[in-house]
Structures are given as C-alpha cells and as structure tokens.
Design a protein around this nucleic acid. Structure first.
Lengths: 118, 118
DNA sequence: CTAGGTAGTTTCCTACAGGAAAATACTTCC
DNA sequence: GGAAGTATTTTCCTGTAGGAAACTACCTAG
C-alpha cells in the first residue's frame, strides 16, 4: 500500500500552483504593492515624488523595485527633457490589470483586522 | 513651494496600504499559498500527506508554516487517537475566505504566462 | 528485533533581502 | 560660488528565510 496519491498531481493544480508562484515572484519584496498602489492612485510620479509618497523606502530599494516592475512591463519609465532632467513613472495598461488582485488583498486585510479586533 | 502633497496621506489609502501589508505578512514565505491551496483542494490531510503533496518542502519548513497558519486560524490541527498517532490538518472556515484571493493570484499568473508567451 | 510509518525538532550553514549613508552628476536659483 | 533639487548608484553591513541532514519518539507489522 504505497501512498503517492497526489491531489496536486493533476495538470490543473500544477498550472494553478505555478501561476501563483509566478505572480508572487513578480510581486515579491516589501515594496512592490506600495509602489503599484501609489502609481495606480496618482498616475505620473517622479522618483522623488515616490520617495515622499512611500513612507520609509530608501532610494536603493525604490530604484531596484522600479527596475523590476519596469522589466515586467507593469510600470513605465519616461525620461523627460525638462530643465532639471525628470523621470516620470506610471502604471502601464498591463500593470493596471493588477487592480482586482490588489483590491482582494486590501479587502481581505481589512476584514482580517475586523475579525481580530471585533 | 515645499512638496509634501501626499496622495497616500488620505486615511483611506493608509488603511488600504496597512491592510495589504497585513495580508502579505500573514501569507509571507515561500510555501503558505501551496499549503493553503492544497488544503483547500483536499481537506483533511496528515503531515506526511502534505509532505508528499507539496513538492520540495522540507519537514522543518512545513512544520513552521503550519504553525504560523494555525496561529492565524487559517488552518486547524487535530490530533487523532489512532493506532499510530495521526494529525489532521484542514482549512478552517476562516481560511476558506482566502479562496477568492488565491483565485485572483492564479488567474493573474495564468494570464501573465499567456501574455508573455503570446 | 528490525524495518518502516507516524510527526515533528534541532543543528548547522548559506544566500539574499533590505537598510543607512555617502558618492555621482547635472541644473538652476540667489 | 554655494545651496538645493533632480535621479540614481555604490558600498558596507546585518538579519532572516530557507535548505540539508540528522535526531527524537512512539507504534505496528513481519
């Protein structure tokens, strides 16, 4: 009676598990959701704007996380030819598809607080 | 003209950001979603069952992650008085409220693969 | 009495995440 | 000429997440 019986061994489960890993990998780290959330709220923000909006983040992390997000086409980076050079960060159309997911996260978190508190 | 102008300084944003941090904190780590997903699929699994289902996890991590999830009332742990002692892990009613969130994660990840692949 | 199954805990190690602070480079205001 | 603003990069350091492997402990079937 050898046990192998894998619930997760069905193709559909494998695909879902992989998809969840992909998503979490893309959105990994302490700051990605903050950055994305901020850019969804106020489209078109400069680097220093983001520093001011996102409480506690350092320039190194912001820079790195923005690069990650840009690589995954969730955020766009546009260098403007202004007097002092300015960079404009914005959510892409594709990045905006994360809104329902972010809403679910927020919804669950809020409900969690209520269930703990009340 | 000092810039402070915080988009994120509204109470509603603060609450949402905090809620997202809470959620991500509770579901942090490499394995939580795998464990939760597995327990949602096949309710009532033993420790060794979970080891077999979750490819690559070690006993230390499984044990620790299950403790975390139990502490947050997402998973229940029941010791059964069987011949060789057996422990039964299951999703709680509360843990099941994560299903929509997990679905969003999977949905987005699947869509991501498609958009990358073409 | 030994092999194998149950459910973990403990120890040791490494790699990476992330923070603080300084450096870079260029421009404009006064 | 110096302060202040733009946008990073670089360096150095620390804590923790997580993996491998061994160990505990108890039970049962052969």
């Amino acid at each position: 009676m050898k046990k192998k019986a894998k619930i997760n061994d069905t193709p559909v489960c494998q695909v879902r598990m992989q998809a969840i890993s992909d998503t979490m990998s893309i959105l990994s780290g302490k700051w990605k959701f903050h950055i994305l959330g901020t850019l969804i709220e106020g489209s078109k923000l400069g680097f220093m704007d983001l520093m001011r909006e996102i409480d506690g983040i350092g320039s190194k992390m912001l820079s790195k996380e923005l690069q990650d997000l840009e690589m995954n086409h969730l955020v766009s980076r546009t260098v403007l030819d202004t007097k002092p050079i300015t960079v404009e960060y914005a959510i892409t159309e594709y990045g905006a598809t994360l809104a329902p997911l972010i809403n679910e996260l927020a919804k669950w978190g809020i409900q969690y607080r209520q269930s703990v508190h009340g």
